[in-house]
């Protein structure tokens, strides 16, 4: 199976997008090699702006550029591109609803060796709380490509969360059409449903395989658009499966888990509900696989959690 990081797929998608949309420009903050906007820079050097290690100025300058009719994509690491510049995004991009795309890489603990200072496990919370903001986290390279195009088509701010680690490129029945705000059911099941996004989709699929060996039929739903949430799909699968798990490489506070919990309560669906995520702690150094294991986010941990909670 082909392996590719969503950040690389992002850099590649930008080139394709820029060929058909002359409004697209890309801004980076001295991390272009890591975010893979170098791929775009090499193809369109006159459309790539390095803003230096000055993220606040970068995102606000992007706001200004959008005011001249351009469609800026801003990239750096998620920790800096959301947390450090939260208020810039809120006041200068989202409040005036400007057409700026924030595509931030190195999200989550799978950043690995750089450690907790560089592992954003709060970015989804920070972005989804802002009015006018659309929040997407693609699960693989193809979905990243489609998310970039969908973001460009939408006239408004979009946050795209991307990963450093290489993950499988889904094939065959796992390859689904991408529609903004519409979750994709990757695996049907009747005993439990695992909602996830990003690199956790692959872990959830592997967990579902393990669970099948234990006689548990688990559905896996890829909620690539965290906001707006596909509430209809969430309620349908929660009602059908009764045991709801949300697996995310993010703090359990403020992430998809809480969004789904609210949807279930307000939708009147009674289900056994479990959040699988970073349990209100910071990340640390280690290999990505070791970290997923340590934080209970790898496939085996998800399967164990499902088995221990399912009724």
């Amino acid at each position: 199976m082909e392996m590719k990081a969503t950040r690389r797929a992002y850099g590649e998608a930008l080139i394709e997008l820029a060929k058909c949309d002359p409004r697209v420009v890309v801004l980076d903050a001295d991390l272009a090699h890591a975010t893979f906007t170098t791929l775009f820079r090499d193809a369109f050097p006159e459309r790539h702006y390095n803003m230096g290690i000055a993220e606040a100025n970068m995102v606000d300058a992007a706001a200004g550029m959008s005011g001249t009719g351009l469609v800026p994509f801003c990239s750096t690491f998620a920790i800096f591109g959301t947390g450090r510049v939260y208020e810039q995004i809120r006041n200068c991009i989202a409040y005036p609803q400007l057409n700026v795309k924030l595509a931030m890489t190195h999200a989550g603990i799978s950043v690995g060796e750089d450690g907790g200072s560089h592992q954003s496990v709060e970015d989804i919370a920070l972005m989804r709380v802002i009015p006018n903001m659309t929040v997407i986290c693609p699960a693989d390279a193809n979905e990243t490509h489609d998310a970039v195009f969908a973001a460009a088509e939408l006239n408004g701010p979009v946050y795209i969360r991307l990963a450093r680690a290489e993950t499988p490129v889904f094939e065959d029945e796992l390859k689904k059409p991408f529609q903004l705000g519409r979750a994709n059911v990757l695996r049907e099941g009747k005993d439990a449903v695992i909602f996830s996004y990003g690199i956790m989709v692959n872990e959830s699929l592997k967990a579902a395989d393990m669970l099948a060996g234990n006689g548990v039929s688990a559905a896996v739903v890829n909620v690539h658009t965290i906001k707006p949430l596909d509430t209809a799909c969430v309620l349908e699968y929660a009602a059908q499966c009764r045991n709801v798990f949300v697996a995310e490489e993010h703090s359990v506070i403020g992430g998809l888990g809480e969004a789904i919990a609210a949807a279930l309560l307000e939708g009147g669906v009674h289900a056994r509900f479990t959040r699988i995520g970073v349990q209100d702690r910071f990340g640390q150094s280690g290999k990505p696989a070791e970290l997923l294991r340590e934080y209970g986010l790898d496939a085996a941990s998800i399967a164990d959690k499902v088995l221990s909670k399912i009724v």
Binding site: A63, G64, M65
Partner: peptide
């Protein structure tokens, strides 16, 4: 910063 972006956009 916003003004810089506008000038850069121009």
């Amino acid at each position: 910063s916003v003004a810089v972006g506008m000038a850069l956009g121009a």
